[in-house]
Simulated assay, not measured.
Amino acid sequence: MKGYPYDLILFDLDGTLIETAPEIADAVNDTLVAFDRAAVTQQQVNDWIGHGTRELLVQALAFVDGIDARAVRESPTFPSIEAVFGLHYEQRCGTRSRPYPGVVLMLQALKAAGVKLAVVTNKEDRYTQVVLDAHHLTPLFHRVISGDTLAVKKPHPAAVDDCLMRFGIARERALFVGDSSIDVATARNAGIAVWALTYGYNMGQPIEDSRPNRVISDFSALAALLPAYASPTED
C-alpha cells in the first residue's frame, strides 16, 4: 500500500491479539481436577503459553506429577487426558478471553487501507477458530495459520513464507507482530521485521531480551503513516 511501510502484517494470537490465558487456565484446571490432580496457578499457565495447548498441558502435568515433560508425552494415559482437555477447552473458548485494547479498530483500519493481515499461532486450529469466531475477528484476516495447519510451526518460518508467496509480497514489506521470543525467532528465521508487545506471555522473560526491531506498548504504534487514522475510541 502506497504510503504505508508494510503490505503484510502477521500477528501472533495468544497474548498479542487476544488475552486468552484466563480461559486456558480454566480448561487446564478443569482437566487436572477431573483426573484427581491439584490445580495450577494463573501465572504458571501464563508462563507455559507459547508452544501450543498440547505442550502447555504437558507442562502442567509434569509440574503437578513431579516428573519431566518427556515422561508425560510418553505416558500411555496422556492421550485420554489430552482428549478430556480438548473438550474442556472448546467449552471455555471465548468465555473469559478478550481482544486487547485497540486491536479491533486497528485491524479494521489496516484492512480497509489494503494491508494483508494474517494470524500465525501455535494454537491448534480447532481452538484458534473458536476463539477468533467468539470475538468476531475471523473476517478481518486474509489467512489464519494454526499450529497444525502446516507440517511445522513457529519458530519455523514456513507460515511466513506461505503468506509471502500466497500474497506475492516481498520480505522487506512484511512485519510480524507478537509478544514472545518465539515470535521474534520466527520473524528472524523468515528474514522479516518484527515488533514485540510489552504485554502478553513470554514465558516469564522480558521481551526486550529477544531484541525485536521495535518494542511497542500497544497497537497504536501500527497507525504510523496510516492515512486518515484518527485513533477512535472502542466501546
Rank of each mutant, 00 (worst) to 15 (best):
V215Q: 15
V33H: 08
F219T: 06
I145P: 01
P227L: 03
R214H: 13
A27W: 01
M165G: 10
E82Q: 14
A151I: 08
V72D: 12
K2F: 09
Y4W: 00
P206R: 12
Y4P: 03
A170H: 06
T95N: 10
L13C: 04
V177L: 06
F167P: 00
A159H: 00
Q42Y: 13
Q129S: 13
E90R: 06
L175T: 10
C93S: 12
F11R: 04
F167T: 11
A196H: 02
Q43L: 14
G147Y: 08
G3T: 00
Y199R: 11
T149C: 10
T41E: 04
V177W: 04
F219C: 01
A109Y: 02
D47I: 13
L61Y: 03
L226A: 02
H136P: 01
A112C: 01
Q42S: 14
F219D: 06
L150F: 08
F63T: 15
R166G: 11
D183R: 12
S80P: 08
L164E: 02
A60G: 14
L10E: 10
V120W: 04
T95G: 05
K116M: 10
V130K: 12
M203Y: 12
E90G: 11
P76W: 04
Q205T: 11
L225T: 13
L87E: 09
T20E: 02
S75I: 09
V64H: 00
I24C: 07
M165C: 14
G204N: 03
Q43V: 14
S217C: 13
V103F: 01
L105F: 01
A224Q: 10
V184D: 08
A25F: 02
A112H: 02
A71Y: 13
V115G: 07
R173Q: 10
K111V: 07
D235C: 01
L132D: 04
K116E: 12
L175S: 06
P5S: 11
N202E: 07
D7T: 10
D133P: 07
Y100W: 11
D179S: 14
V103C: 01
T128N: 10
D148Q: 11
H142C: 06
P155S: 14
P206C: 02
D12Q: 09
F78L: 10
Q42N: 15
L10H: 05
Q44Y: 03
L8H: 01
E208L: 11
Y127I: 09
V84R: 05
A71T: 15
Q44V: 07
V194N: 02
R188L: 14
V194E: 09
S80D: 11
M1L: 11
V103G: 00
P139R: 15
D162W: 08
D161G: 11
T95S: 07
Q59C: 14
V160T: 14
Q91T: 05
P157M: 05
S181R: 15
A159W: 05
M203C: 12
R126D: 08
E23P: 08
T149R: 03
H88P: 02
Q205N: 13
G102K: 06
K111Y: 00
V45N: 01
E172D: 06
D133E: 13
D12V: 02
L197H: 00
S180V: 09
R96T: 01
Q44M: 12
Q44R: 09
I169E: 00
L17Y: 09
T53L: 07
H136W: 03
A62C: 12
